[in-house]
Amino acid sequence: QAPETKIVDKSRVACDGGEGALGHPRVWLQIPEDTGWVECPYCDCKYVLKGSKADAL
């Protein structure tokens, strides 16, 4: 199944896999201003900063 994409309001987000005990260790991710998105290294969930150029795609 394809990784999930989430639109977020802040450039710093936490990801834990979203499945409680079945998820992964919580990691904090920083969305770079130049790209407007970041992917979780564990679950490949893509976080897109709302209003960024990546959000316009």
Score class of each variant (00 low, 15 high):
residue 1 Q to S: 13
residue 1 Q to H: 15
residue 1 Q to L: 13
residue 2 A to P: 12
residue 3 P to L: 11
residue 3 P to V: 11
residue 3 P to T: 12
residue 3 P to Y: 13
residue 4 E to R: 15
residue 4 E to Y: 15
residue 4 E to N: 15
residue 4 E to V: 14
residue 4 E to K: 15
residue 5 T to G: 07
residue 5 T to H: 11
residue 5 T to D: 05
residue 5 T to Q: 08
residue 5 T to P: 12
residue 6 K to Q: 09
residue 6 K to T: 12
residue 6 K to G: 05
residue 6 K to R: 12
residue 6 K to H: 15
residue 7 I to N: 01
residue 7 I to H: 06
residue 7 I to K: 06
residue 7 I to C: 07
residue 7 I to F: 09
residue 7 I to T: 05
residue 8 V to A: 03
residue 8 V to K: 03
residue 8 V to P: 05
residue 8 V to E: 02
residue 9 D to P: 05
residue 9 D to I: 10
residue 9 D to K: 06
residue 9 D to H: 11
residue 9 D to G: 07
residue 10 K to Y: 13
residue 10 K to M: 09
residue 10 K to S: 13
residue 10 K to N: 11
residue 11 S to E: 07
residue 11 S to R: 12
residue 11 S to F: 08
residue 12 R to G: 05
residue 12 R to W: 14
residue 12 R to A: 08
residue 12 R to E: 11
residue 13 V to S: 01
residue 13 V to T: 01
residue 13 V to M: 02
residue 13 V to D: 01
residue 14 A to E: 09
residue 14 A to L: 10
residue 14 A to T: 07
residue 15 C to P: 00
residue 15 C to Y: 00
residue 15 C to A: 00
residue 15 C to N: 00
residue 15 C to V: 00
residue 15 C to K: 00
residue 15 C to G: 00
residue 15 C to R: 00
residue 16 D to S: 10
residue 16 D to V: 12
residue 16 D to F: 12
residue 16 D to G: 03
residue 17 G to T: 02
residue 17 G to N: 03
residue 17 G to K: 03
residue 17 G to E: 03
residue 17 G to Y: 04
residue 17 G to S: 03
residue 17 G to H: 02
residue 17 G to Q: 04
residue 18 G to D: 04
residue 18 G to R: 09
residue 18 G to S: 06
residue 18 G to A: 07
residue 18 G to K: 10
residue 18 G to P: 13
residue 18 G to N: 07
residue 19 E to N: 10
residue 19 E to I: 12
residue 19 E to W: 09
residue 19 E to A: 13
residue 19 E to Q: 10
residue 19 E to L: 12
residue 19 E to H: 06
residue 19 E to C: 15
residue 19 E to R: 12
residue 19 E to S: 11
residue 20 G to K: 05
residue 20 G to Q: 05
residue 20 G to N: 05
residue 21 A to T: 10
residue 21 A to Y: 10
residue 21 A to H: 08
residue 21 A to F: 08
residue 21 A to I: 11
residue 21 A to L: 11
residue 22 L to A: 11
residue 22 L to C: 01
residue 22 L to Y: 10
residue 22 L to G: 08
residue 23 G to A: 15
residue 23 G to T: 09
residue 23 G to C: 00
residue 23 G to P: 06
residue 23 G to D: 04
residue 24 H to F: 05
residue 24 H to K: 02
residue 24 H to S: 02
residue 24 H to Q: 04
residue 24 H to E: 02
residue 25 P to G: 05
residue 25 P to K: 10
residue 25 P to R: 11
residue 26 R to K: 08
residue 26 R to M: 08
residue 26 R to C: 07
residue 26 R to A: 01
residue 26 R to Q: 05
residue 27 V to N: 01
residue 27 V to C: 09
residue 28 W to A: 00
residue 28 W to T: 00
residue 28 W to I: 02
residue 29 L to A: 02
residue 29 L to P: 00
residue 29 L to S: 01
residue 30 Q to I: 13
residue 30 Q to W: 13
residue 30 Q to M: 13
residue 30 Q to P: 01
residue 30 Q to V: 13
residue 31 I to W: 02
residue 31 I to M: 02
residue 31 I to E: 02
residue 31 I to L: 02
residue 32 P to G: 04
residue 32 P to F: 03
residue 32 P to S: 06
residue 32 P to W: 05
residue 32 P to A: 06
residue 33 E to D: 08
residue 33 E to N: 06
residue 33 E to I: 11
residue 34 D to I: 06
residue 34 D to C: 08
residue 34 D to F: 07
residue 34 D to V: 07
residue 35 T to I: 13
residue 35 T to S: 08
residue 35 T to Y: 05
residue 35 T to M: 08
residue 35 T to D: 06
residue 35 T to N: 02
residue 36 G to V: 05
residue 36 G to E: 03
residue 36 G to P: 02
residue 36 G to I: 04
residue 36 G to Q: 04
residue 37 W to R: 01
residue 37 W to E: 05
residue 37 W to P: 01
residue 37 W to C: 01
residue 37 W to Q: 03
residue 38 V to N: 03
residue 38 V to M: 06
residue 38 V to P: 01
residue 38 V to W: 02
residue 38 V to S: 01
residue 39 E to Q: 15
residue 39 E to I: 15
residue 40 C to Y: 09
residue 40 C to Q: 08
residue 40 C to L: 09
residue 40 C to R: 07
residue 40 C to A: 08
residue 40 C to I: 08
residue 40 C to T: 08
residue 41 P to V: 05
residue 41 P to M: 06
residue 41 P to A: 05
residue 42 Y to T: 05
residue 42 Y to D: 04
residue 42 Y to C: 11
residue 42 Y to I: 14
residue 42 Y to L: 15
residue 42 Y to Q: 11
residue 42 Y to K: 13
residue 43 C to I: 01
residue 43 C to P: 00
residue 43 C to N: 00
residue 43 C to D: 00
residue 44 D to T: 14
residue 44 D to P: 14
residue 44 D to G: 15
residue 44 D to M: 15
residue 44 D to C: 14
residue 44 D to N: 15
residue 45 C to D: 00
residue 45 C to G: 15
residue 45 C to S: 15
residue 45 C to E: 00
residue 45 C to W: 15
residue 45 C to H: 15
residue 46 K to P: 01
residue 46 K to S: 04
residue 46 K to T: 06
residue 46 K to R: 14
residue 46 K to N: 07
residue 46 K to H: 07
residue 46 K to W: 07
residue 46 K to D: 13
residue 47 Y to W: 08
residue 47 Y to I: 06
residue 47 Y to D: 12
residue 48 V to S: 00
residue 48 V to W: 08
residue 48 V to N: 01
residue 48 V to G: 01
residue 49 L to H: 10
residue 49 L to F: 07
residue 49 L to I: 07
residue 49 L to M: 07
residue 49 L to A: 08
residue 49 L to Y: 07
residue 49 L to N: 09
residue 50 K to I: 07
residue 50 K to E: 11
residue 50 K to N: 07
residue 50 K to D: 10
residue 50 K to C: 14
residue 51 G to H: 04
residue 51 G to E: 07
residue 51 G to M: 04
residue 51 G to K: 01
residue 51 G to T: 04
residue 51 G to C: 14
residue 51 G to I: 03
residue 51 G to F: 04
residue 52 S to A: 03
residue 52 S to P: 02
residue 52 S to I: 05
residue 52 S to L: 03
residue 52 S to Q: 03
residue 52 S to W: 01
residue 53 K to S: 09
residue 53 K to D: 10
residue 53 K to G: 10
residue 53 K to N: 07
residue 53 K to M: 10
residue 54 A to R: 00
residue 54 A to F: 03
residue 54 A to M: 04
residue 54 A to T: 05
residue 54 A to P: 04
residue 54 A to E: 07
residue 55 D to A: 04
residue 55 D to N: 01
residue 55 D to W: 00
residue 55 D to T: 00
residue 56 A to E: 12
residue 56 A to N: 14
residue 57 L to M: 12
residue 57 L to T: 13
residue 57 L to P: 10
